[in-house]
Computed example of a mutant assay.
Amino acid sequence: MPGNMCVMAGGAMLGWSSPIISKLKEDPINDDNPLGRTIDDTEASWIGSLTPVGALIGSFMAGYLAERWGRRITLLLSVIPFSLCWLLIAVANTVEIIYVARLIGGVALAIPFTVLPMYAGEIAEISIRGILGSFLQLFITIGLLWSYCIGPYVSYTVLWIACAALPIVFFIIFYPMPESPYFLFANGRKTEAINALAKLRGKSIQGVEIEASEMEVGTL
């Protein structure tokens, strides 16, 4: 499912700190250390731990936005904090800027972890719902591997570009996806919900009438 690319982007963001911390501990003359100095163990631990703090904050925001604006829009909006995170990392010349970037990255990470399971469960047919739900763990692992496999062999700049490309790819491939029919039914947008369901199932509007009726009853 295209939405899992957002989870992969989150995994890459999580894994980014592992190869980068070792670079930031190297000789500051090295081009891979944009700070102009080496970082100590305390600073390294903050770089690694601020992302979960951001995720804690972001999970509440994501849940609220998903109920107010919809699952699809909320997932697409995750590209904003992801992009801001990588922009700050790109221009960082102090460790404090990296702290802020990692905190914002945690907020971005919380969005797919909170909203994607909702979206997948609401659009999937019962027969494949479990499989779609299992992809979340798979794709965050792929994202971690993305950073772990690339990071040790490329520069600081190349790694953040490689990681920053993932949320952009997600936005492009996920944009055509329809909103959750359940969300649309729950908000009284029946015509849009039926059209979305027909698109998801690859059927005509008449072909999804029974399932649409069941969904509508389920949202009452």
Rank of each mutant, 00 (worst) to 15 (best):
M1Y: 07
V7G: 10
G10L: 02
G11A: 08
G15Y: 11
K23Q: 13
I29K: 15
A44I: 02
A44G: 15
S45Q: 13
S49H: 05
V53Q: 01
V53A: 06
G54H: 11
G54A: 12
L56D: 01
G58P: 08
F60M: 11
G63H: 00
A66C: 12
G70P: 07
G70L: 11
L76W: 13
L76I: 12
V79Y: 05
S83P: 05
C85T: 15
L88G: 05
L88S: 07
I89N: 12
A90F: 06
A90E: 01
A92S: 14
I98D: 06
I98V: 15
A101L: 03
A101R: 07
I104W: 09
G105N: 12
A110M: 00
F113S: 07
L116D: 06
P117K: 10
M118K: 04
A120L: 14
G121E: 03
E125W: 04
S127I: 10
G130F: 04
L132C: 09
L138Q: 06
L144N: 08
L144I: 00
W146E: 14
G151I: 09
L159E: 04
A162R: 07
L166S: 01
P167R: 05
V169G: 02
M177E: 14
P178V: 01
F183N: 05
L184S: 12
N187P: 01
A193L: 04
A193G: 10
I194E: 13
N195P: 00
N195D: 14
A196C: 11
A196W: 07
R201F: 08
I205V: 15
I205K: 13
M215A: 03
T219R: 08
